[in-house]
Amino acid sequence: MATSTGHVSGARATGSSLRLSFLMFMADPQWLIPSMIAPVIFGLVSFELFRSAGPYFLTYAILGAGMMSMWGQTLYGSGWAIGQDREFGTLEPTIGAPAPYLYVVLGRVLWNVISGLIGGGIVYLVVVAAAGAPPAVPDPLGFVVLFVFVMLTLASVGIVFTAIWVYTRYAGFVQNIGEFAFYVGTGCMFPVVLLPFWTNPIALFFPPTWAVDALRYLAIPGYVGFGWGFWVDLAGAVATTLVYVGVAGTIFRRVERHVLEDGSLSWY
């Protein structure tokens, strides 16, 4: 009996991993409710706070604290999925399969981007319903495209974070401490320029900082931010994202080796 394994395509592994994530979600879709409660409340609260601040208050409400949990989904959901794989005991057979593990992770991350967008859509609808009218956005199409891009920059950070999840069983612990700092530090919650100056250079290492700043330029007329304008922000976001994706490729090979050395693929 000849082994009849064909060529293992990265795209196919990624697609299959995305499909698996979707099926796992569909098996238990009610998780969406608890993960939506916080964003919806944040969205509504900031809408009330910014109500009298001008015509773009609604955009602030949606882009601000309300998005926090949604972005969390993109950024950390993948790492969490790895933690689950370890708990289920499925990390071993997955890593033991010929497909490079990075492609599997990519599929998980893409699913999290998609589910993040679904969550974002729900927050949007709730806040709009509360406001009675859709937000005033100068360039709605550009906004949507850029919004998806912001999610992808978060996903690129997510892949690197995921490597840490694979690397160590204690990633969850580290992450719980780091999560809040990350939202503040990258300007996901409010513009980084409002933070003490020394935090700004650190924030620039993270792709979302640039992307979120660009998004604010697009959506909020009169926004100042770092002051170097939309296009520089966009270029910075693309460049840093590419660096993260490149780094992820390298890290993953090392991480895979490390876990085989360490014997930490399963709970022991």
Binding site: G6, L20, P93, A97, P98, A99, V104
Partner: peptide, 10 residues
Amino acid sequence: RYFADLYGIP
């Protein structure tokens, strides 16, 4: 199906 894909089964 998931594992078939990771093993590159045609």
